[in-house]
Structures are given as structure tokens and as C-alpha cells.
């Protein structure tokens, strides 16, 4: 019972209202980054933000719903990747509880841990659903590794591990910058404000 109690405490009205805005932040920043033609996605800043101020469960929910909305409204190709988004939010939340969202260099560590998680979780999806090569540009690295005789799982994981850290560290740092820009009075209304102050 203690677990459900503590999960419930993370979902106050502020959390519920922040989640839609956070998902919109994911989508719209993702699109701005695409307009600027930057070689990253940055499509989970909102998820990391929720995870930091409202805990791992709220972060996991934001990630999941973010992919569902992306699939419902923009591109159904996003649906099968929801476990990745779920775990990004979940791990970011635990990083925040562990105090990794208090100074910028610790945020870099958090970003790295999030990247590692994303690489691990997306590997089986890419391998079993897409046969290893997905529709993203980084598939050329996977293809190259396959040609050098690596196994599919190993090739996909190595690719993810090369690509993810830059994206997720930048994501975590931007989420941290947003948190630093918010007032203490505002942050205090969220259930896990102590994680970021």
C-alpha cells in the first residue's frame, strides 16, 4: 500500500495540468529542432521536466502519453516506441530523486543514464519489430556494423549507444535550464519540488 500511496501523492492537480503542456513541449520543440535542422531530436524535454518535478511515475506516464498523442495526431509510426519514452521518464524521475538535477554537471550524468536506458529499451523494438534497421538515418551505422559481421542485437545497440547520449544529455540540460528559469514559488506547487532546489 505504501507504493500506491506515494504514487498518488505525485499526481496532484498541478501534475495533471503540467502533463499536457509537457507533451506539447515535446512535440513543438521536436518540430522547432527539425526546422533548425539540428542533428538531434530533443523530443523528450517535457518528459524529463515532469519527471524532475513530479517523480518517476508521472514522468513515465508523460512519456507514454506523449508517444500515444504523437501517434494519434502526427505519425502512427510513433506508437511502437512508447516503451522507450516510458523508461526515459521513469529513469529521469529516479535520477531527480537521487539528486542528479541539482547542479549542471550532475545533470550531464543523468542525461547519460537516460541515454543508456533509451539505448537498451529501443534495441529489442528495433530488432524484433523492424528487423534491426529502422527508418532513421542512424540505420546506416547499423547496416555498416552488420556488414562487419556483428550480430543484429549488438549492431543495433552499438548504434543506439553512439547516437543517444548527445541527444539525451542535451535534453536533460535544457530541461534543467527551464527548471532554473522558474520561480521557487511556482516550483513549490509540484509534489517533488525538493528534487530540483
Amino acid at each position: 500500500m505504501k507504493l500506491t500511496e506515494s504514487i498518488k501523492k505525485d499526481f496532484n492537480t498541478m501534475t495533471w495540468v503540467l502533463i499536457p503542456v509537457a507533451i506539447a513541449i515535446n512535440v513543438v520543440i521536436g518540430q522547432i529542432v527539425a526546422i533548425l535542422k539540428l542533428p538531434v531530436y530533443l523530443d523528450s524535454i517535457g518528459t524529463v521536466l515532469v519527471a524532475a518535478v513530479a517523480g518517476p511515475w508521472a514522468g513515465a506516464l508523460t512519456g507514454t502519453l506523449s508517444n500515444i498523442i504523437w501517434g494519434l495526431a502526427i505519425d502512427p509510426n510513433a506508437f511502437p516506441w512508447f516503451p522507450v519514452a516510458l523508461f526515459i521518464g521513469f529513469v529521469a524521475g529516479w535520477c531527480a530523486i537521487g539528486g542528479l538535477f541539482k547542479t549542471w554537471w550532475k545533470v550531464v550524468i543523468a542525461g547519460f543514464l537516460i541515454a543508456l536506458t533509451a539505448a537498451i529499451v529501443s534495441t529489442p523494438i528495433a530488432v524484433y519489430l523492424y528487423g534491426g534497421i529502422t527508418a532513421s538515418g542512424s540505420s546506416f551505422i547499423t547496416a555498416y556494423l552488420l556488414e562487419t559481421g556483428k550480430g543484429v542485437v549488438q549492431a543495433v545497440f552499438s548504434t543506439n549507444f553512439l547516437v543517444e547520449p548527445v541527444d539525451k544529455i542535451a535534453t536533460a540540460l535544457l530541461a534543467y535550464a527551464i527548471i532554473k528559469g522558474l520561480s521557487k514559488r511556482y516550483l513549490a506547487r509540484f509534489p517533488r519540488a525538493e528534487n530540483v532546489s
Binding site: 492537480t13 498541478m14 503540467l18 533548425l36
Partner: peptide, 25 residues
């Protein structure tokens, strides 16, 4: 230059939307 453009574009957007969260709550 494009990396530098990221913050001036996303900053106002994000903070503007987050302020509305409290009112909506």
C-alpha cells in the same frame, strides 16, 4: 548559428506555456 537560435526560440514558448499551467490548475 542554428544551435544558438534554439534558446531564443524555445525559451519564450516554454516559459509562456508553463505560466498558464497554474491558472489552468
Amino acid at each position: 548559428k542554428r544551435v544558438g537560435a534554439l534558446l531564443p526560440l524555445t525559451g519564450p514558448l516554454v516559459f509562456g506555456s508553463l505560466v498558464e499551467v497554474e491558472e489552468r490548475a
